[in-house]
Design a protein around this nucleic acid. Structure first.
Lengths: 92, 92
DNA sequence: AAGATATTTAGAAAGTCCTCTAAATACAAT
DNA sequence: ATTGTATTTAGAGGACTTTCTAAATATCTT
């Protein structure tokens, strides 16, 4: 899975905001870009990082690309953090 | 608090391993360093990043510096992730 | 006080990250 | 087929990261 990739993806404020936007449902790259004062190329760069970290799904439709949240990796990160803080289950 | 700082701190494998080591209780900088094939200066650099992210506490004693886990920031990160994945409580 | 031990700080090198502009690709509509 | 719209890819610039060696600081022991 790659925690390095995941935490690095989550470390950027733009990418965290993209994920928050996607809580409301899937959005096209252009719709996501409209929320930021950045070029589409930069947004595409961030989406690529989120996709590689498997934090988002991508679905092509017509000439749009829709992005949506993938929460399964979020669950894995939460498990790691739970183990770190010591949940009383002695997990390593 | 600064999620950027926190996630960035968690994105490095050495720093994640340091945190995992500290699950077993507090350790001095030297004891931590003994687990890695790196100079003490490099370990000190990583400890500084963990400290600035408030993921560890520091306590000076004699001429040792002991580090221990601070789980409160871990809790905050988990809260953010819980909200992201949608816990049914409509939190933003 | 002098020397030894523990740790940090400073500075440099190599690599990675974020942003931009310009160009490329892909599909849609006329 | 041409033009337009949506998005990505390529390449460059500046900033940040990780590691090292060497030097500095702080504390302990003799």
């Amino acid at each position: 899975m790659g925690f390095a990739e995941t935490f690095k993806a989550l470390s950027d404020p733009v990418r965290r905001e993209i994920l928050t936007l996607l809580r409301g449902g899937r959005l096209s790259a252009g719709e996501i870009g409209a929320h930021f004062d950045m070029t589409g190329a930069t947004i595409s760069y961030h989406l690529g990082i989120l996709k590689r970290a498997q934090l988002v799904f991508e679905a092509k439709e017509k000439n749009f690309i829709y992005y949506s949240l993938n929460t399964s990796v979020v669950e894995e990160v939460m498990l790691w953090l739970t183990e770190l803080k010591g949940d009383g289950n002695d997990a390593q």
